[in-house]
């Protein structure tokens, strides 16, 4: 018992520490293998992770048409694709929101992708199964996947940076820091970060 006590105390301390890794909704954590999916892009084509043979990985971002935080990050997401697609990590944007809202419909997604000249796929997660598998809870919610053989391993989960309101006031570029490590073949020093966003609009069962 005496030997166990320090361990037990440590476990308790970890469990109650406010800095303990967050046991978020069930979903992917760093190190998990992502299950591939096939979702319809705004151009009508089905997109899967395995489909792009050249990709070393992906920056998967659950985002949407209407959330003000998603809108605040839209230009930054477009910039991410411009920067990281040439490095082998293109953006794949997925809209998980219930498309019963006309502003989140497939047609509205097409219109947005066109008017803002998305250089990356913008996929509709019609059944919301992909968002549930990933454990996405909000928009925007971001996951970096790295190809390891046939698998795509979750290498970063969380925020793009530390200031949603104003890109000019960003002090820490969490995602860019992680991508610097990941593209250099190293695990991200900070692989899980926090962000605030709009709850995904789940379908009323």
């Amino acid at each position: 018992m005496n030997k166990l006590l320090p361990l037990l105390t440590l476990c308790l301390a970890l469990a109650t520490s406010s800095f303990a890794p967050r046991p978020a909704a069930d979903g992917y954590r760093v190190g998990d293998k992502a299950t591939d999916f096939k979702l319809k892009n705004v151009d009508g084509q089905l997109v899967s992770l395995a489909g792009n043979k050249a990709a070393k990985g992906y920056i998967v971002v659950f985002t949407c048409n209407t959330c003000p935080f998603a809108q605040a990050y839209e230009a930054r997401i477009i910039a991410l694709d411009k920067k990281y697609a040439p490095l082998g990590y293109p953006v794949v944007a997925i809209n998980p929101n219930d498309a019963a809202d006309p502003d989140e419909s497939y047609a509205a997604m097409q219109a947005l992708a066109k008017s803002h000249a998305y250089s990356f796929p913008y996929l509709q997660d019609e059944t919301q199964r992909v968002a549930r598998a990933f454990g996405a809870t909000r928009t925007p919610h971001l996951f970096v996947l790295k190809r390891q053989g046939p698998a795509f391993v979750v290498s970063y989960v969380g925020a793009i940076d530390d200031n949603a309101e104003d890109a000019n006031l960003v002090k820490t570029n969490y995602l860019e820091n992680a991508m610097a490590d990941i593209t250099a073949g190293k695990p991200a020093a900070t692989n899980t970060t926090q962000a605030v966003g709009c709850s995904i609009r789940w379908k009323k069962s």
């Binding site: 406010s18 046991p23 978020a24 909000r138 919610h141 605030v196 966003g197």
Partner: peptide, 12 residues
């Protein structure tokens, strides 16, 4: 965020 509650993923 984590200091409010460890279970909060950040969705409002």
């Amino acid at each position: 965020l984590n200091q409010v509650d460890g279970k909060w993923s950040g969705a409002l």
